[in-house]
Design a protein around this nucleic acid. Sequence first.
DNA 1: TGGCGACTGGAAAGCGCATTCCACCAGCCT
DNA 2: AGGCTGGTGGAATGCGCTTTCCAGTCGCCA
Lengths: 335, 335
Amino acid sequence: MVTLSDVAKAAGVSLATASRAFNGSKDRHVRPELRDRVIEAARRLNYAPNAAAQQLAGGEPRSVALVVHNIADPYFSSIAAGVERGATGFGGIVTLASTGLSTDSQIQVIETLRRQRPRVLVLVGGLQDDRDDLQRLREALADFKTFTGAGVAHVGQPVLGVSTVAIDNEAAAADLARALLAQGFTRFGVLAGPEGHLTAAARSRGFTEAMLAGGATAREPVHGEFTRDGGHQAMADLLSSGDVPELVFAVNDVMAVGAMAAARERGVRVPDDVRVAGFDDILTLRDITPSLTTVHLDLEEIGESAVQLALDDQHGEPRTVVVGGSVVLRESTRR
Amino acid sequence: MVTLSDVAKAAGVSLATASRAFNGSKDRHVRPELRDRVIEAARRLNYAPNAAAQQLAGGEPRSVALVVHNIADPYFSSIAAGVERGATGFGGIVTLASTGLSTDSQIQVIETLRRQRPRVLVLVGGLQDDRDDLQRLREALADFKTFTGAGVAHVGQPVLGVSTVAIDNEAAAADLARALLAQGFTRFGVLAGPEGHLTAAARSRGFTEAMLAGGATAREPVHGEFTRDGGHQAMADLLSSGDVPELVFAVNDVMAVGAMAAARERGVRVPDDVRVAGFDDILTLRDITPSLTTVHLDLEEIGESAVQLALDDQHGEPRTVVVGGSVVLRESTRR
DNA sequence: TGGCGACTGGAAAGCGCATTCCACCAGCCT
DNA sequence: AGGCTGGTGGAATGCGCTTTCCAGTCGCCA
């Protein structure tokens, strides 16, 4: 293991000079010729600084802790790509942790991450609407900030007392509803995601209220997991109830896809017999047939903003940035 | 910032005892009652150990460095999920880096990652078939092992001189070809991915040779990026050439999806006018219509194995584990 | 030409922790 | 009853690095 002092020795300078040669310290200038000698020696010895030592010796932490539900889910992986871009922006490294959607597990992971002393923490993903859980999460995050000095940002709803990139689910879902109302749909159902899931609830509510306001009538919402299979199951339930609405809004794209599959399996045609809309506009799903009406979210951008927000959060008050979505009408809701 | 010595003080013991209370050191035993006092004090003070200090003081590194092309690509994010599971298995943390497919960028990232002193490095993704690039990558990896003592594993082809989870692309593609031959297809084309991409080439070769051996005839392969748009473009080229084969093999699912979209746009029906097969069996794409014939790969499992291999690699010779794929015939190649 | 400041290099302290090495105190043997 | 084990707590060292704090060494002015 080659250390900086090996490099210093090889270059015939002191440890301090070698260190200064690299981080171009402000206090002292090192003669260019000497600096080159050091760098050359480092190259020759294949030296790589020890990040742990650097951090311990007082360097600014350079890592971004990213907490998601499930990295294999395209929603999260797209955001992750953005977070990574944001991290690269300041020379950072991202450390990844998945939690599933249990609040306990989120808290657990957040506490474990404290030992990394990251520069910032980005928590992504819908929360469970449980007063107690939410409170504990809030505390975990607050402790995190207090005890590590890191900036914290959340992607989701502004309910955690930290900087957040708040996706305006309710408004966007309402926009979607209005666009669909304009097409003349009146009787609808909602595949509402997990019970008590804040994001799912906001989307569901925004859509439902706007539809009702427009004079449409609602079928009882059906709950299901926030996954393809959840959407499949929910749609199957809905279809087998016999009470099939004109239009079904699934609170995210993967559920919508599952829903369409369930419809297909039962010979119910989309969009002829029933129309389906989703939310997120997942890139990988752009080519399913029929193409899916949805709300476009710039997920990468959202991830990158979250990093920025968390960085700012270190020196100032928590901020909230609201990002909207744009309705994209496609085949799956064709009249 | 609360340190271990604060905890020790609060518990009325020495620093050493406090340390031992946590990692249950082998050399000395600490009385249970004392240990509890320490742990209680830590809880009260909200103490979290400093990972950097622990590592510096000689602790085993606990991080897994994961290098992928693009985390937003479902292929990589699925593998990432597996890697994460593998890391969790030994209490590790994963640090993520994306490189695109430039070898330079991969090398660059690998060198940067050296400063993290991770326990293992997992490099995922197809390589460019460039003698010089490959050699430099090999050296970067070898240096990595030498200078950090980390285990290294690659997911891809066993050409890097390190432990690898080798996906048997050629054999699996040949299996796919034979399954398709059995359905009576004879004239085929290949959407071959980026020129010089080893994985793409192996899949293309395995498929083509098996088809030819079965008496089929090939159209000139079309190259394109390893993405949805690459597949779209390649298929468009193929279709506008006027020379449309019965069957088109795209070297991965996302290309296949792009290809199907291109066909659809031109009024060419799948599978009536042309059949399309892919590779990877991406979960998110399971529900596209027509459902895609492909080769199933257990991506999460592959990621987890890679971690295991890299861990083993630390104490022994590089190993190669070959994983196969299983052909899944679906609608897109229906006769 | 003596002396002052502007630069530049080096020695040393310390970041938070794990881990030898020591010192101590029981209880045991002879 | 004195020396010994076996078992326990504590002081001290060092991991690799950044960063004061000092000590030189020039060049310049008067």
